[in-house]
């Protein structure tokens, strides 16, 4: 299935349509999110099980997560490396009284970093919800 994070932002799946797993996730009790058959189970919250995403959703989920990571990190890294190197030529222009090169390298990169993390948080959350990988609310 395809899920560009753009559409994930726009269309959130209703909770009841999110695929849920019916089989234990893993071979080992210790690494399974569900309490697998044969694993020790207590009463109350000691034996609590959690619902997680379907196994077949893992690959598309991780593919979208990887693309989101690249989309967040690569432009930011390119920007912080390239921008200061051109600061001197940009300093001939002014913005709010600041030399533009200095302003973009200090205030600009700070704002872009905040924007990058903020947009990552929203878009990754949308991807989590789309694939049913999100935490319970």
């Amino acid at each position: 299935m395809t899920c560009p994070s753009e559409s994930a932002r726009a269309v959130k799946r209703p909770a009841e349509t999110v695929p849920r797993m019916s089989q234990p996730l893993s071979a080992s009790c210790l690494i399974s999110s569900n309490v697998a058959p044969g694993c020790p189970a207590g009463n109350g919250d000691e034996g609590a099980a959690t619902i997680m995403m379907e196994r077949k959703e893992r690959k598309p989920y991780w593919r979208h997560t990887k693309w989101q990571m690249l989309a967040s990190v690569v432009p930011f890294l390119v920007l912080i490396i390239v921008l200061p190197l051109y600061a001197e030529s940009l300093n001939t222009e002014r913005f709010l009284g600041f030399p533009l090169g200095y302003f973009l390298s200090a205030h600009g990169i700070a704002v872009i970093a905040i924007f990058t993390v903020g947009s990552f948080v929203n878009r990754q959350d949308a991807i989590d919800h789309w694939h049913g990988a999100h935490e319970d609310n």
Binding site: L25, S26, A27, S28, L30, I31, S33, A48, T50, I51, M52, M53, R58, Y61, W62, T65, D128, G132, A133, H134, E135, D136
Partner: peptide
């Protein structure tokens, strides 16, 4: 090992315990 691979797959998913 297989259990490590499964562990890594699980780390990557935010939901669950």
């Amino acid at each position: 090992s297989r259990s490590v691979l499964e562990l890594v797959r699980e780390i990557r998913i935010p939901g669950g315990e």
